[in-house]
């Protein structure tokens, strides 16, 4: 599906105007877990065919914001979202929208590799079968595994359990599973935090390849990773002034600008490693 290039004005003053087509625009008023205000007013546009990196100290709500983009947070009963997340102009939090449908268009890769307890082949074919794909399954599985840069490692053992692979291979298998149905947007929630440096490298290279076809939103606790792969970076901070810990978007802009010429004092302190 092609995005109608709609230039939704970024609401937050600190976000500089994006240059490309916006696939998703996340306009958060408030996000709660029970009574706890987790994230307050933040606007995060996600641009087409770019990697948007979310960085910030722990507890700043970057994962919460990412998981609001495909309604994964709905799994948590006490989660409450106030605001709008538009996807090609349609609010995914609209009452008429089924979260199941949202997740079919907006795929996700998680922090921990989480392949299903089934064969490598079935893992990748899972989404295809789920969507009632009637074409050549083998071909699509191969394509997805190639796309996730793990075809050569697994092509001779497609019938083996997905859990028999190493951590890095499992994560790439999960990426293959996510891209097999060719979703529009790929959300990646610290996809390398459980991986060793070599596997991390491979996944980062993969992200750069994938952005040619997909739009990616990436949460990372690793600032170097953001500088290596993200086109745009959103820096989230924690506000402790109300006696609670509430996350909010401090600043968003081209990655180079965030790291070399931040507009906010807090951003500068964070990217220089003065707190974490």
């Amino acid at each position: 599906m092609n995005a109608t290039p709609e230039m939704t004005a970024a609401g937050a003053a600190s976000a500089s105007a994006p240059t490309g087509a916006i696939v998703m625009n996340c306009q958060i008023d408030r996000v709660f877990y029970g009574d706890f205000l987790a994230v307050r007013a933040s606007t995060v546009p996600i641009e087409k065919n770019k990697i948007t990196g979310f960085i910030g100290p722990s507890g700043c709500g970057k994962s919460t914001v990412l998981r609001s983009l495909n309604r994964m947070n709905d799994l948590i009963p006490i989660f409450r979202f106030e605001g709008k997340v538009t996807y090609h102009g349609q609010d995914i939090y609209d009452r008429k929208v089924d979260p199941v449908v949202v997740r079919r268009y907006i795929g996700m890769v998680f922090q921990q590799p989480n392949p299903f307890a089934m064969s490598i082949y079935d893992n990748v074919a899972f989404g295809l079968r789920l969507n009632g794909f009637k074409g050549n399954l083998d071909e699509r599985v191969e394509k997805a595994l190639k796309g996730a840069a793990c075809w050569n490692e697994v092509k001779d053992k497609l019938k083996n359990s997905g859990l028999s692979l190493s951590g890095g291979q499992q994560q790439r298998l999960c990426i293959a599973r996510a891209i097999a149905t060719e979703p529009d947007v790929l959300l990646m929630d610290e996809p390398c935090s459980a991986l060793d440096p070599i596997a991390t490298r491979r996944v980062e290279e993969l992200m750069l390849e994938l952005k040619e076809k997909y739009t990616i939103a990436l949460v990372t606790h690793n600032m170097q990773q953001a500088t290596r792969v993200a086109d745009t970076t959103a820096f989230f901070g924690v506000d402790i002034s109300q006696g609670s810990r509430t996350g909010y978007l401090v600043e968003m802009g081209p990655t180079r600008q965030i790291f070399e010429d931040p507009q906010q004092k807090l951003t500068g302190e964070y990217v220089r490693g003065e707190f974490s």
Binding site: L75, R103, M108, F110, Q112, N114, F116, A117, L130
Partner: peptide
């Protein structure tokens, strides 16, 4: 593990799927 459940819902399964 909870992460398996997340993976399933993340693929866009309904509850019964």
């Amino acid at each position: 593990p909870y992460k398996v459940k997340e993976a399933a819902y993340g693929m866009g399964t309904t509850r019964w799927e």
